[in-house]
Amino acid sequence: MDALKSAGRALIRSPSLAKQSWGGGGRHRKLPENWTDTRETLLEGMLFSLKYLGMTLVEQPKGEELSAAAIKRIVATAKASGKKLQKVTLKVSPRGIILTDNLTNQLIENVSIYRISYCTADKMHDKVFAYIAQSQHNQSLECHAFLCTKRKMAQAVTLTVAQAFKVAFEFWQVSKEEKEKRDKASQEGGDVLGARQDCTPPLKSLVATGNLLDLEETAKAPLSTVSANTTNMDEVPRPQALSGSSVVWELDDGLDEAFSRLAQSRTNPQVLDTGLTAQDMHYAQCLSPVDWDKPDSSGTEQDDLFSF
């Protein structure tokens, strides 16, 4: 819950932080000083300027060897085509990944977070970031790969997607708890209302004896509580940590079903599988986004697919 609360507080303090972009060759504004600060901008989305290598189908939802083989196929196909790589912007948030063309600003792909089953910074092609997700059109699994400016960037994108998945799962947990509370309150309110109706004398007997209905007592009954809980029953509950912020979080049926399955089948359902080692994760978390744009010590960066 700490990640969720800190993310909400950060967004309320400075929503404009989320509009910064990394990996864009110096076009961005001043960047936060450390990885923790940038992680807090996830709610509205972190932007990464990358190059799209392509996509291939895979048979399993996750796995280092599986993704490595898929990336190898994608890279080989991209090299064989001889075409310049498409420059894209990857927007990562707890909602998922939005992929747009840098030149036309046209939407290429919009992947809900619950469809993503794996992401990684490839070991062999260490400047490549990739994720595996279920197609929104059918049940097939797709591996999408992107060329980053350097290994640090690939690791940073991988960690960002993993963190977005974690925050999304926490949102789901909060929403589920809130819905259970509202359902319980609604049920209790309905029981109270039913009890009051059972003990209320029939209207005919009131008229016969000349008694008047006590409207004041009726007004004191917990009807307002019942209506408050039943009027918006169809509205999706939102985490309290975000009250007053500009973010509107809505959970669709697909996300609810997917996270429910994860909660039942996995020990740590909030953790998205990645190909990063503990050492890689520690190294990337210690980086400032400013470091992502620094040239690798191995030599001059080449803006070309064939540089790796």
Score class of each variant (00 low, 15 high):
Asp2Cys: 01
Lys5His: 02
Lys5Trp: 09
Lys5Tyr: 12
Ser6His: 13
Ala7Trp: 04
Gly8Cys: 01
Arg9Ile: 09
Ala10Ser: 14
Leu11Cys: 11
Pro15Gln: 10
Pro15Thr: 02
Lys19Gln: 11
Ser21Cys: 14
Ser21Phe: 07
Gly24Cys: 14
Arg27Ala: 13
His28Val: 14
His28Leu: 14
Arg29Gln: 04
Pro32Ile: 14
Thr36His: 11
Arg39Pro: 09
Thr41Gly: 13
Thr41Asp: 14
Leu43Gln: 14
Leu50Val: 05
Lys51Arg: 12
Tyr52Gln: 01
Leu53Ala: 00
Gly54Leu: 00
Gly54Val: 03
Met55Gln: 13
Met55Pro: 07
Thr56Phe: 01
Leu57Val: 07
Leu57Ala: 14
Leu57Glu: 08
Val58Gly: 01
Pro61Val: 14
Glu64Gln: 09
Glu64Met: 14
Leu66Lys: 02
Ser67Phe: 11
Ser67Tyr: 00
Ala68Pro: 02
Ala69Leu: 09
Ala70Asp: 02
Lys72Phe: 08
Arg73Lys: 13
Ile74His: 01
Thr77Ser: 07
Lys79Asp: 00
Lys79Tyr: 10
Ala80Phe: 04
Ala80Asn: 11
Ser81Lys: 13
Gly82Ser: 02
Lys84Val: 05
Gln86Trp: 12
Lys87Leu: 13
Lys87Met: 09
Val88Asn: 01
Leu90Pro: 00
Lys91Phe: 06
Pro94Leu: 03
Pro94Ser: 13
Arg95Thr: 01
Arg95Cys: 03
Gly96Lys: 07
Ile98Gly: 01
Leu99Val: 12
Asp101Val: 04
Asp101Leu: 13
Asp101Tyr: 07
Leu103Ser: 07
Thr104Tyr: 07
Asn105Met: 13
Gln106Pro: 03
Leu107Glu: 02
Ile108Val: 13
Glu109Asp: 13
Tyr114Lys: 01
Tyr114Gly: 02
Tyr114Leu: 02
Ile116Asp: 00
Ala121Arg: 05
Met124Val: 08
His125Arg: 00
Lys127Glu: 00
Ala130Tyr: 00
Ala130Met: 02
Ala130Trp: 00
Ile132Pro: 00
Ala133Leu: 11
Gln139Arg: 12
Gln139Val: 11
Ser140Ala: 10
Ser140Leu: 13
Leu141Lys: 13
Cys143Arg: 00
His144Gly: 00
His144Val: 10
His144Gln: 10
His144Ser: 10
Phe146Asn: 00
Cys148Val: 01
Lys150Ala: 06
Arg151Val: 13
Lys152Arg: 13
Ala154His: 01
Leu159Pro: 00
Leu159Asn: 11
Phe165Asn: 03
Phe165Tyr: 07
Val167Ile: 13
Ala168Tyr: 03
Ala168Val: 06
Trp172Gln: 02
Glu177Met: 14
Arg182Ala: 14
Asp183Ser: 13
Ser186Ile: 03
Ser186Glu: 07
Asp191Met: 04
Arg196Val: 05
Gln197Asp: 03
Thr200Asp: 05
Pro201Ile: 02
Pro201Cys: 02
Leu203Pro: 08
Ser205Phe: 02
Ala208Phe: 03
Thr209Ala: 14
Gly210Thr: 09
Asn211Leu: 04
Asn211Phe: 02
Leu212Ser: 11
Leu212Pro: 10
Asp214Arg: 12
Asp214Ala: 10
Leu215Val: 12
Glu216Pro: 11
Glu216Val: 06
Thr218Gln: 07
Pro222Met: 13
Ser224Ile: 12
Thr225Pro: 14
Val226Ala: 09
Ser227Ala: 12
Ala228Lys: 05
Thr230Trp: 07
Thr231His: 07
Asn232Met: 04
Val236Asn: 02
Val236Pro: 10
Pro239Met: 06
Gln240Trp: 12
Gln240Asn: 14
Ala241Pro: 13
Ala241His: 05
Ala241Gly: 12
Leu242Ser: 10
Gly244Gln: 02
Ser245Ala: 11
Ser245Ile: 11
Asp253Thr: 13
Asp253Gly: 08
Asp256Met: 04
Asp256His: 14
Arg261Ala: 09
Ser265Leu: 15
Arg266Gln: 11
Pro269Glu: 02
Leu276Tyr: 08
Thr277Met: 03
Gln279Leu: 03
Tyr283Ile: 08
Ala284Leu: 02
Leu287Arg: 13
Leu287Cys: 03
Val290Ala: 06
Asp296Cys: 05
Ser297Val: 13
Ser298Ile: 09
Gly299Cys: 08
Thr300Glu: 02
Thr300Gln: 10
Gln302Asn: 04
Gln302Trp: 05
Gln302Pro: 12
Leu305Val: 06
Leu305Lys: 08
Phe306Leu: 04
